[in-house]
């Protein structure tokens, strides 16, 4: 059985796709593009797909990963293009490698997030970041199915900084200002790197922490995008490509 790892996105309005929604959409795309899937044994066979670490509903992502098992050998790049064509725009398949190394999920050590705070002055955000980072521990609450849970949101944060509000070649803000081009309001942007720990610390939890330590209260919900997930380079506080090992292990040619 050939196995292929794919990187896909949840962009724009399709960030509201839940993980279950994505699974159904992906399995239908497999059928439409007639991918020769390997099936699980048993009374109701399922195509072999495993998903890693999906981003929450409402959060955009440039770096989601999954792995599929095939019953026949396919060229990874052709397969990627085929699946990308078959999925709606916004759910884009952007990378594919043949599996050559084990323990992929363990390799996803951390995620890099971009958090866009509409209506927040960049200076105010930068100040809040400094206050948060100065703390050793920042306790936050999250409502879960089993009631309210209290945990530390500081320890898992490997990097946090307020960055220039310029994304995608500066289309986000009007030239030379920190005003949002769509709303004309101020807009702060945070870059955040969080280790994948237990309990999982999400960008939302870090925002709760910013509120708790520095009274940072954005007037509208933050727009969050996962930019990367993979091995964490502790020194630089950056996340590297989790598919690099498989690529390196591929025979030359």
């Amino acid at each position: 059985m050939q196995r292929i790892r794919l990187r896909y996105t949840k962009r724009g309005r399709l960030r509201f796709t839940s993980h279950r929604d994505f699974q159904r959409a992906f399995e239908r795309a497999l059928r439409r593009s007639a991918v020769p899937m390997a099936y699980s044994a048993g009374f109701t066979p399922h195509p072999k797909v495993s998903y890693a670490n999906a981003a929450p509903t409402g959060v955009a992502s440039e770096a989601e990963y999954l792995e599929i098992g095939l019953a026949a050998v396919r060229d990874p790049e052709q397969l990627r293009a085929q699946l990308d064509e078959s999925l709606p725009a916004g759910l884009d398949v952007i990378d594919a490698v043949e599996v050559r190394t084990p323990n992929f999920v363990e390799r996803l050590e951390a995620s890099e997030w971009l958090v866009r705070l509409d209506g927040v002055e960049p200076d105010q955000a930068a100040k809040a970041v400094r206050t948060f980072l100065a703390e050793e521990k920042v306790e936050v609450e999250r409502r879960t199915k089993n009631g309210v849970r209290v945990f530390d949101a500081r320890g898992a944060v490997a990097a946090l900084e307020a960055v220039e509000p310029q994304v995608d070649g500066g289309t986000d803000t009007a030239a030379g200002t920190d005003r949002d081009v769509r709303t004309g309001r101020p807009c702060a942007i945070l870059r955040l790197v969080v280790r994948h720990a237990t309990p999982a610390v999400r960008p939302d939890d870090v925002l709760s922490g910013l509120r708790a330590t520095a009274d940072l209260a954005p007037p509208v919900p933050a727009e969050v995008t996962r930019l990367a997930q993979g091995p964490l380079d502790e020194e630089s506080g950056t996340v590297t490509d989790p598919l690099a090992l498989d690529r390196a292990a591929a025979p030359a040619g």
Binding site: R13, L14, F16, T17, S18, D21, T57, G58, P88, A89, G90
Partner: peptide, 8 residues
């Protein structure tokens, strides 16, 4: 279930 309102 916000996905029901986005179309696409």
């Amino acid at each position: 279930k916000p996905i029901q309102y986005v179309g696409g």
